[in-house]
Structures are given as C-alpha cells and as structure tokens.
C-alpha cells in the first residue's frame, strides 16, 4: 500500500482545487471465477425492488461481484437503498466481457448473425455494471460506466468526485471491479484459468472542495476520498504503477478490522488519489445519510 507522501505538497496548482468526498460506507467482495456461476441464481433482494430470478443469468462476472460488494456494504452499514433512490452510480470495470466476447468470436464466423446472443451489448459494455446496479438497487439517479481499461480506477474516482457537481446528487456509489489476472479463454471462450474477480463498493457524499479534514463533519473527517489534481507539466508524466482494486479492498479490510487505513496512488497525468478510512465503526451511520434527493424532487414535481 502506498502511503501518503510528503511531496504531495508540490501539487496541486492554484487553479485546480482538490476534489474530496466523504466515504460513508465501504465494502469489498472477491470471488474466484468458478465461484461466480452459482451467484447467477441469487440476484440481490432489496425491499421495494422486484427482480426476476434471471436478472443475473447473462450478466458479466464483474457485474455479479460488484453487486455482491454493494450487498456487503448495505448489510454491514444497515443501508436501505430506498432511502438513497436519487443517488448516482459510477462503475469502473476493466476489460468487461472477455469470456463472452471470446465465445461470440468463436461462434460468429460459423453461425453468423443468429449465433450472436442478444445480450452482449447490454451486459458486456462499459455501462453494464452501473446499469445493473441501478436496477438492482432501484436507484433513479444517473448511472454511468467509466474507464474500462488501464487506469480505470483513476477514471472512476475522478468521475465520481465530479458527478456531485454535474447533477448535484446527494451521494454516489462508486464501484470498482477487475480480475486480478485476466481470464484466459480457450478457442470456444471457456476459461482456462481461475482468476479472482475483485470488487469494491464505496458510498460517497460530497465534501467541500479543498477542505481540510478538520472542516469535515464529525468522525467522517477521517474517511475521505480525495483527488489532488496534478501539474500539467509533461515531464511529470511518469510510469507510475497502476493501482489495483485488490489494494483498495485491502484498505477496506484494514478498516473493517478496526484499524485506520489509507491508500494512495499517482495518476499518469500527475494527479493523485488519496483515500483514508476510519475504523469501520466510525463511518457515518445510516441515520446520517441524506434522505432528500434532488432527482426525487424532480420526479415528484413531474408527477
């Protein structure tokens, strides 16, 4: 885990203040590929949301593990998604759809159009994890996928912290998913290895731009996700190691064990992400989550 370095003070420039969010809930999930198939038959069940038993039948593996991470977070922090109906969802999967895609590439030249399952666009695209999560949780705030490839974590954090400005949502679920080593499909798209799919679910509320921890409310000051924009100097574009979802899951695990935890990484353009998590019991309780949701206001007016 990369600690928070003293040289952070070099950045940011005056014109680009930090973007900060309070982490109000955090959880992770990890499953080996062979463990995911049984989960397809167990779609999440939240009060007020009616999901078909087939909801996950064609879902990508990363969608399934992301939903498991959210479920852990909602259970651990006793969150009822009905109270967060206006929250947004940002999901940053990585190389989604490899196994399904390999199977399609095997079948397509042999069977043509009719060999292509009608689910690939819906289930194996950048939007698929966020779209499925919005349905599973019954959330009508915006949902969007970001990243998709290398540095997807950076894209996800940046989009999540910006989303508060875009639509003034009261909160955002940030879902980060990836395989720790990618599945290797055979000729027909069957996996030849058994990698682990990791997912992290962070429930974020807006923090003040550039605010110091002491300006944050209560104990939540100790649980923050911050983007420190970097310099635009090209000389600073370095080959930083790409962060992994497993690293962030490790930080969450430490918090769950009652330890204050921190994680940070540099981004290729010179920005830096920093996350501090208070011990889990210090994260905001359910009662403190905002219940007034802008889109719901709009919905009421529209109705």
């Amino acid at each position: 885990m990369d600690g928070i370095d003293k040289d952070v003070a070099v950045f940011p420039t005056e014109s680009s203040p930090d973007l900060t969010a309070i982490v109000v809930a955090a959880a992770s999930a990890a499953y080996r590929l062979r463990e995911i198939a049984p989960l397809r038959k167990l779609p999440p069940a939240y009060p007020g949301v009616e999901l078909s038993g087939h909801f996950l039948k064609h879902a990508d593996e990363q969608t399934i593990v992301a939903l498991a991470a959210i479920q852990r977070a909602t259970q651990r922090y006793n969150i009822d998604p009905r109270n967060l109906a206006g929250w947004g969802i940002i999901a940053a999967p990585r190389y989604i759809g490899r196994l399904t895609g390999a199977n399609v590439l095997y079948k397509f030249p042999r069977g043509g159009t009719s060999a292509v399952a009608p689910h690939i666009v819906a289930q194996c695209s950048l939007h698929s994890v966020s779209g499925a999560a919005s349905i599973a949780l019954g959330m009508q705030g915006p949902n969007v996928g970001v990243g998709g490839g290398e540095w997807a974590i950076g894209d996800g954090v940046m989009a999540a912290l910006t989303l508060f400005e875009i639509v003034r949502v009261p909160g955002v679920w940030l879902l980060l998913t990836e395989f720790d080593c990618e599945p290797v499909p055979d000729e027909e798209g069957r996996p030849q290895n058994d990698p682990t799919c990791h997912a992290v679910a962070l429930a974020l509320m807006p923090g003040s731009a550039g605010a110091s921890p002491s300006q944050m409310p209560g104990e939540a000051a100790n649980s923050q996700l911050t983007l420190r924009p970097g310099s635009h100097s090209k000389s600073l574009r370095a080959n930083y190691p790409e962060p992994t979802v497993a690293e962030i899951a490790g930080c969450i695990d430490a918090a769950e064990r009652g330890l204050p935890a921190r994680w940070a990484c540099w981004l290729p353009w010179g920005g830096r992400i920093e996350m501090r998590l208070a011990a889990a019991e210090l994260l905001l309780p359910q009662e403190a989550l905002p219940q007034d949701v802008l889109p719901q206001d709009a919905l009421t007016r529209a109705a």
Partner: peptide, 16 residues
C-alpha cells in the same frame, strides 16, 4: 498531457 476518461452509458454516452 491532461486527464482522460472513457465514459459509457450506451446510447447516452456522448452527452455524459
């Protein structure tokens, strides 16, 4: 040299 991102919301992607 600045930040970059891909965003996907299917047919709504470019508005995002």
């Amino acid at each position: 040299a600045g930040p970059s991102a891909s965003v996907g919301s299917a047919c709504a992607s470019a508005n995002f």
